[in-house]
């Protein structure tokens, strides 16, 4: 049982990394970004591109089966993914915002971007799975009866580091304050001289950066497929709703709950219904506590 929980925590870390971007676009840009999964996929494949170009493999760090080459590739991939996301925003979402298009129009556009993104990856890779490197997880016993894989520990640690950086950004920097101001009240923020466009740019970039980290780590842990991000979309949304939508900490907490719930579903033999279990959790929460774990009632 405890073994499943360890898997759940790793899964939760990846879901949370992806869901932060979802939460940020939801609060600053005010729509549910159905293309978030593809940002993650793009990050994973861009990392693959850089790993391939560098040609240095993915390295190792002690018992961990990846090292600096993968991390450096991931950083370069963050820049590439961020650039693509900004271009999509410039071409599609910005004009729609400029027209004061409804939230639903934005969602629909995002749904279109999601399908296009997934199929562009399919088009370019032929749809076959890719791997950064040959990787067999080797577990060691942390204490008797409980084994962990060093890479899993590394993934959780990297996620923790990323969250720490995020909280410094949101709570301690001027841009973070501006983001929160725009999330609270865009009109008031603009009147007070906040450059809303810059805030939107940084919202996309930060979300894309964390999604890239999630994509690269997920790709290392499993494999790269065009649907890898899309398959995480429902758990990410679930984390968002569970956390109360307007609260970043809540989103992370929501991701932990979802990760553990899915692990539990697998543990009791419902692995085929994993996503359906996630969905059931969403429904229960919407019924009982629509404001989420840490949210406030509107």
């Amino acid at each position: 049982m405890i073994q499943y929980l360890a898997d759940g925590i790793v899964n939760a870390a990846l879901i949370a990394l992806g869901a932060i971007g979802l939460s940020m676009t939801y609060n600053v840009l005010r729509f549910a970004n159905f293309a978030q999964g593809e940002i993650l996929t793009a990050g994973a494949y861009f990392t693959l591109l850089v790993v391939t170009v560098l040609g240095a493999g993915i390295g190792t760090m002690g018992p961990i089966a990846f090292g600096w080459p993968l991390l450096v590739s991931m950083l370069v991939a963050i820049a590439l993914t961020g650039a693509v996301v900004l271009v999509v925003d410039m071409l599609l979402f910005a004009p729609l915002r400029g027209r004061n298009a409804s939230r639903i129009t934005l969602i629909m556009a995002a749904f279109g971007v999601s399908l296009m993104g997934r199929n562009l990856v399919m088009l370019m890779t032929g749809g076959e799975p890719f791997y950064y490197d040959f990787y067999i997880p080797r577990a060691f016993a942390l204490f008797p009866g409980f084994e962990v894989v060093p890479d899993d520990l590394a993934i959780v640690a990297i996620a923790g580091l990323a969250f720490a950086l995020l909280f410094v950004l949101v709570n301690r920097t001027s841009m973070g304050r501006q983001m929160r101001a725009v999330a609270e009240n865009p009109t008031l923020a603009r009147v007070n001289g906040i450059d809303v466009r810059a805030v939107i740019r940084w919202t996309w970039i930060v979300g894309a950066a964390l999604a890239t980290v999630a994509g690269a780590l997920l790709g290392h842990n499993t494999q790269l497929r065009p649907e890898m991000g899309f398959d995480l979309l429902l758990p990410m949304f679930a984390a968002l709703i569970l956390g109360g939508a307007t609260n970043l900490y809540g989103t992370i907490l929501g991701a932990v709950v979802i990760g553990l719930t899915e692990a539990l579903a697998v543990a009791i033999g419902l692995s085929g219904y994993r996503a359906a279990v996630t969905f059931a959790v969403i429904v229960v929460f919407l019924l009982l506590r629509p404001q989420g774990l840490l949210g406030e009632r509107e």
């Binding site: 939801y26 939230r103 949304f237 709703i241 359906a276 919407l286 629509p290």
Partner: peptide, 28 residues
Amino acid sequence: FVTLRLREDFLAISTFGVAIAIQLVCLN
């Protein structure tokens, strides 16, 4: 009944979830 009282985004997310859940039921 569950979602129509909530913000429109939640309806979108829930119906998306419904479709996935239905597909899983068909599959499993």
